[in-house]
């Protein structure tokens, strides 16, 4: 099961500069563990010590913010698109 994960500029040092990488997992949590296996250290930038998503990291599954769909327990399926972005200001 392959899920495409878009990586923001700021985290591409972990993916050898790749803008997008493939991962697997049936939840977001499993996907991030899988990514950390192939790109060591990336998990530590996304997840805080208490196990939650970093305050300034937003993760979207098919354009929807995972904080409103179960956070790290959000279910994933083949073909889903995951986008990671840093939180920035609007207005």
């Amino acid at each position: 099961m392959a899920i495409e994960v878009k990586i923001p500029t700021i985290l591409r040092s972990y993916t050898g500069g790749a803008k997008a990488v493939d991962g697997t997992g049936d939840t977001l949590s499993a996907l991030i563990d899988n990514l950390d296996g192939s790109h060591p250290g990336i998990k530590g930038r996304l997840i805080t010590d208490d196990g939650g998503l970093h305050r300034f990291v937003n993760v979207y599954v098919n354009d929807e913010d995972v904080r409103f769909t179960g956070s790290l327990d959000t279910a994933l399926k083949d073909g889903d698109a995951v986008t990671i972005l840093p939180a920035v200001a609007g207005g």
Partner: peptide, 24 residues
């Protein structure tokens, strides 16, 4: 999104995610 590190991110002080149902 050209921040130097994640900790330069920004969430407005007004934001309270309990008001929202979903975010796209």
């Amino acid at each position: 999104y050209g921040l130097r590190n994640i900790d330069e991110g920004f969430v407005p002080e007004l934001y309270d995610d309990s008001v929202l149902t979903s975010r796209f």
